[in-house]
Design a protein around this nucleic acid. Structure first.
Lengths: 350, 350
DNA sequence: GTGAAAGCGCTAACAC
DNA sequence: GTGTTAGCGCTTTCAC
């Protein structure tokens, strides 16, 4: 009854050798239908569960994966992580989730722990992976952010990301088409592929519509959080009092900016229009209602897990240098609504 | 150079037996200063890291802990989990974080995986732990929510929670002292000790100030999220048009309620005052500024980890039925500000 | 179709 | 103070 039994106990109770029990459990090698039935019965009766650690020692790798994530306190990352964890769990892979807080020291340490635990695979969400010389010893999938490798080392990298440039492009286009002509942007860390590409998309949209992008209308936030968004907007509006449109490289920045906007007495969408990125839950709240770019976090996860599992299972350790760019979607909300009459106010019912 | 070496290799290179190497690594047994120095040198040179899986097999438990959490997408839980993970990592315990989505099926499965991996300890955050008959096989700490055991089984339980009743009491008292007389409450799942106690504190404060608690002014939200808070407020205000104070059992509920409040043309704090619970980041935003009850998530974590580690290390498997109730703190913000003049408006600068 | 046995890397007696 | 050795529970040749 207690789940404490070992394969030896099962073999004795079912009158076969431990080798055969192992074959049944792993569905490899040969055994008769009859034997299988008997063994399965005992396993069930004893509520036996194979010891994953012993198996891990024998196979030199444990059936588990490590997930490296900057900060699960950020709803976007939390969502991605949650999906990954669910999908992995369905394939019977438990996940070690490691927060790095963008600290390469912590990242290093977590990586060491994961290595000592012999995880079978790794998923990097927006990771720094600063350790250039380190060769990836286990199958690894990168999500959201391109690892800053020198291309020479780059065998066997899988990258899954959104079409960030298209996202930036859609965002700026939405602002343009809803009538804005002075469109600013709050970015974050343009040294990262993610945010750099969003910025490029923004510039592209402006250029295409005949506007010369002005670097004075772009500000780089210090952190990716509402407080930084708040301060960035304050700076930006000071330099550009005629701002009538704003694209923020993430929703948390947009939320901070929105507060600043209200505070100085401007109205969204009447006096300024706003677009964010990520589609976190807060943006959907009635009364906040920020137009944003939705990334398909569910697809991130399902693709990542599917590929990772196949890399972990197959002997196929072949370089399968793959790159996935997922489409993004504009979620149109009140913050970019055209204002024709006075019917839209804070007090109006939904 | 590669971190692929084994204890055997280290022993050969340093000219001692593997037993001695093991002793040095684990700092137990005896060895000469000189030997230690030599062994350490080789370990460093080879960049050797002990195989945690082999050790785990030998010791019948792996140096890692499992964390069971309902939903890391909820900022409050994310914060607690993040702290736990950091504190555990400092003690060299990697953490398996498992989201249950409040689904006992998933919880069961995660528990099985963790057991197969032989984790040394378990932390339940607000867990259902529905499985009454299951005896805890490893040291376990419960955070936030009392497990619904029958007391007979209750050896060896550690529970860490906030003083939720005091929190509810502080919240209602704040509303009373800022002039409210019709104070409603949005609760969530009062079958849980956490929310039940907040509700009790609320009732206590009302009673003490001579108000008879009216069950019509209390509504139980379907989920713990803004949408539920929004709808709950709509129902509540319909039944109680004179409501001038509202206590929400969590901040996410309060945020939803706030939207509903704005939508029907009421003003916070002018026409209704509001208090939440948890102190998640959104409540602190300028323009939102919801008074709330702060729980010391950092203390949750440090206490939990300290106790768990001691339980995991010591042979002391003794029943140490411990219970910690941590103080909470009222964070006073604009949503409960007394309004004497017209100086406080939405448009006022910070 | 099945069993015997080696061994994954480590810890913990037990010897000396 | 140090070495030898027996497993921990499992997978996987290699026999038969």
């Amino acid at each position: 009854m207690k789940g404490k039994s070992s394969i030896k106990e099962i073999s004795e109770l079912s009158g076969v050798s431990i080798a055969t029990v192992s074959r049944v459990i792993n569905q490899n090698g040969r055994f008769s239908k009859d034997t299988e039935k008997r063994v399965r019965k005992v396993i069930k009766e004893m509520n036996y569960q194979p010891n994953a650690v012993a198996r891990g020692l024998r196979k030199s790798k444990v059936q588990a994966v490590g997930i490296i994530v900057p900060d699960i306190t950020n709803e976007f990352f939390a969502q991605v992580t949650l999906n990954l964890q669910n999908d992995l769990s369905k394939m019977n892979y438990p996940a070690f989730i490691c927060n790095t807080r963008e600290d390469s020291e912590i990242e290093r340490k977590n990586l060491d722990m994961l290595k000592a635990l012999q995880v079978s695979g790794l998923i990097y969400i927006s990771g720094a992976f600063s350790d250039d010389k380190e060769t990836l010893s286990v199958p690894t999938v990168f999500i959201d952010r391109k690892p800053p490798f020198n291309s020479s080392n780059n065998h066997n990298i899988v990258l899954i990301e959104s079409d960030n440039e298209q996202g930036g492009y859609l965002a700026a286009t939405e602002l343009l088409s809803s009538g804005c002509s002075n469109i600013g942007m709050i970015t974050f860390n343009r040294s990262r592929s993610t945010h750099y590409n969003r910025y490029m998309g923004y510039k592209k949209a402006l250029s295409e519509s005949g506007i010369v992008p002005d670097e004075n209308m772009v500000i780089e936030a210090e952190n990716s959080d509402p407080v930084s968004g708040y301060h960035s907007f304050k700076s930006l509006i000071e330099k550009n009092p005629h701002l009538d449109g704003l694209f923020c490289s993430s929703d948390v920045l947009a939320i901070g900016a929105l507060q600043a906007i209200h505070e100085i007495g401007m109205k969204v969408p009447e006096s300024i229009k706003l677009v964010g990125f990520d589609d976190i839950s807060t943006t959907a709240l009635p009364g906040i209602s920020i137009t944003t770019i939705r990334q398909s976090t569910a697809s991130f996860s399902s693709i990542a897990v599917k590929i990772l599992v196949s890399m972990m299972n197959e002997v196929n350790d072949e370089p399968e240098n793959k790159q996935f760019v997922l489409p993004v979607e504009l979620i149109r909300r009140k913050s970019t609504q055209m204002v024709l009459t006075r019917e839209i106010t804070d007090e109006a019912p939904l």
